[in-house]
Design a protein around this nucleic acid. Structure first.
Length: 278
DNA sequence: CGAATCTCCTGGAGGC
DNA sequence: TGCCTCCAGGAGATTC
């Protein structure tokens, strides 16, 4: 479900909680990708949510004594409830705040994660947090550090398909299966092109289209495939703007040729052979 | 080292 | 209605 636009949409929907005090924490199903720390129901109450930031597809919830790192995996979704409604089957984790609002994590496939990073009494800038999951991440796609020069250099020694390369979080974060196909279409680049064969000019085009695609999706409130909804329960609308994703056999919106689907790195990959060149 | 494959888990869709 | 197979937005771990 969630790529960068969906995670960012989720984060923004939770900003109203910043400054509030935690009342209680409930863990119903601790076995996500990694176990949810069992001490959270003791640790978090009476702490203030100091800030909410995002790095890659991780939401970082800054509390007084540490940072709660949340990842939505494939099927995760966070709801912001104004009351403590009865949980449903896959509602694994709640944070209840003073005033009654509840942050609720639902994740049927349980590929998501909730982890705790203790700050050990130090006032650490959340941007400078050290954690194995955060240490080797590439640049944020919407920031200035992700540019043609950077990408060209990062792809320099890579022979794998460009589509797989831009989905590698060491190269650039936040680009998942949907937006990889969409960005490559917009850039006119065939997904099987060897990463190190892209000229600096085409890197420039690809960088621009990744930024543009993610921005457009963000403005639409993300994409709703099956089950993405914002924290307020409203779906995103970007899927209505897909050029290629999920459109196998339909005609290209630009040239009318039929959209093709191949498997790359075990993932469905959609493209137009007329509009996208190697 | 890079690249490809495997893995975690549940649910929905489609075929029979 | 039931049973089977296939597929799904991520990404770390493992293997070659």
């Amino acid at each position: 479900m969630p790529e960068l636009p969906e995670v960012e949409t989720t984060r923004r929907g939770l900003l109203t909680l910043v400054g509030k005090l935690v009342k209680s924490v409930t863990i119903r199903h601790p076995t996500l990708r990694w176990p949810i720390p069992q001490h959270l129901p003791q640790t978090l109450p009476d702490q203030t949510l100091r800030g909410l930031t995002r790095r890659a597809k991780y939401i970082l919830c800054e509390f007084d004594t540490g940072v709660l790192l949340v990842h939505l995996g494939m099927s995760g979704r966070i709801q912001l409830l104004d009351d403590n409604y009865p949980p449903e089957k896959h509602d694994h984790f709640d944070i209840e705040f003073n005033g009654g609002q509840v942050l609720r994590l639902r994740d049927p496939r349980r590929f998501g994660a909730v982890l705790w990073i203790e700050n050990n009494g130090l006032d650490i800038d959340v941007k400078a947090i050290h954690h194995p999951l955060l240490n080797s991440l590439g640049p944020e796609p919407l920031e200035a550090g992700f540019n043609a020069e950077y990408l060209h250099k990062a792809l320099n020694n890579k022979t794998l398909a460009i589509k797989n390369a831009i989905m590698d979080s060491h190269v650039v974060v936040g680009v998942g299966n949907i937006y990889a196909s969409e960005s490559l279409f917009r850039a006119g680049i065939h997904p099987q092109t060897s990463a190190n064969k892209l000229s600096i000019r085409r890197c420039e085009k690809l960088v621009a289209e990744i930024k543009c695609t993610l921005q457009d999706a963000l403005l639409a409130g993300g994409s709703s495939l099956r089950d993405f909804f914002g924290t307020d329960g409203n779906p995103g609308y970007f899927q209505q703007e897909y050029f290629v994703y999920g459109r196998t056999g339909a005609s290209c919106k630009v040239c009318t040729k039929l959209i093709k689907c191949i498997r790359l790195g075990q993932r469905s990959t959609f493209y137009c052979e007329q509009c996208q060149k190697r």
